[in-house]
């Protein structure tokens, strides 16, 4: 292949500079309008009356109890879904069995159920008129309009996050390494701890961090089961709503700014996990010659030089 043809082929897989810059420009403007501006607006609105007003809003006891409840909720919901995610990924990715695809679909189900419906089903189970309502009232146990209901609704909406991340990852990695460990005499637990876990660690972190972000930020489902009792059953997003509806804009955006910070931290950790994972995959890919992919163009370039 002559070098002129190579240049022509290369030019054929990209656009003219003016097209390129126009497309990049439109993309950046769109993302600026839809992502950067809303994010910036949260902080701008929160600080509109200065740092003192911002600080006052965050020092409110009701704001504090909302922060505490949000942390408690995430601290229960995320580990529960972590254990489930690992168990589900292990049986779905490592084995073949009948009904596997149905199971995988059902694991995804909470993603497509409206959060409001998710909250409602728990009201129908544990509410005063629900299945277990009378029994719970007799024994003086409160689930709906109380903390357990909030935790349950949060567990429901964040249910698939970790499993969804781990299943394709563990499927792609196959069983050979684990089988080798077992044949060499490792126990099942050792195999998981020393062989599987290091392989899935970045995917696991990725899933946990997104699960946590959703757990702390869930609004619709929690709003149905919470009862909005100030200082008791208000999570941070619900507290934001109450303040906003009371026209306490600065206070609402102050609490919202904490959630926006959480989102930013989530994005940073997520990106780092992604980059590390890619780098490790690349390192593995470079080691085995069968995975090195050479395009005809690469080969011809090498031949030409």
């Amino acid at each position: 292949m002559s070098s002129q043809m190579i240049r022509r082929a290369e030019a054929g897989t990209t656009e003219a500079p003016w097209v390129r810059y126009t497309l990049i420009g439109i993309t950046l403007i769109f993302l600026f309008l839809f992502l950067v501006l809303p994010l910036a607006a949260v902080f701008a609105e929160a600080l509109r009356k200065g740092f003192d007003a911002y600080w006052e809003a965050l020092k409110e006891p009701d704001a504090w109890s909302a922060i505490r409840l949000t942390l408690i909720t995430a601290l229960i919901a995320v580990p529960l879904n972590l254990v489930f995610g690992i168990a589900a990924a292990w049986c779905i990715a490592k084995y073949e069995f009948r009904g596997k695809s149905i199971l995988t679909t059902l694991v995804d189900l909470p993603f497509s159920v409206s959060p409001v419906v998710a909250g409602l089903v728990y009201v129908l189970m544990f509410g005063a008129q629900g299945w277990f309502g009378p029994w719970l009232q007799e024994h003086d146990i409160k689930i709906i309009f109380a903390v357990p209901g909030i935790v349950l609704a949060t567990v429901f909406v964040t249910f698939p996050f970790i499993a969804r991340e781990l299943i394709p990852l563990m499927q792609a990695q196959g069983n050979e390494e684990e089988q080798a460990a077992i044949v060499l005499g490792a126990t099942g637990w050792q195999t998981f701890w020393y062989v599987t876990l290091p392989n899935i660690k970045w995917g696991l972190i990725y899933g946990v961090i997104l699960c946590n972000a959703r757990a702390m930020g869930e609004f619709g489902a929690v709003s149905v089961v919470s009862g909005h009792i100030r200082g008791q059953t208000n999570t941070m997003p619900l507290h934001v709503e109450i303040l906003y509806n009371e026209y306490q804009s600065v206070a609402a955006f102050a609490v919202a700014s904490l959630l926006a910070l959480l989102a930013l931290v989530t994005l940073v950790i997520k990106s780092v996990a992604e980059w590390r994972h890619e780098r490790e995959m690349k390192a593995i890919g470079d080691l085995s010659p069968e995975n090195v992919k050479s395009t005809p163009l690469d080969l011809s370039l090498k031949a030409a030089s």
Partner: peptide, 28 residues
Amino acid sequence: ALVDLPFALPTAVAGISLTALLAGNGWV
């Protein structure tokens, strides 16, 4: 990385922030 913001930002925060932007006295 920013493309995932809507996954990470709580929906209620997105809601009040978009409202603040687009209301008659907002930036936009």
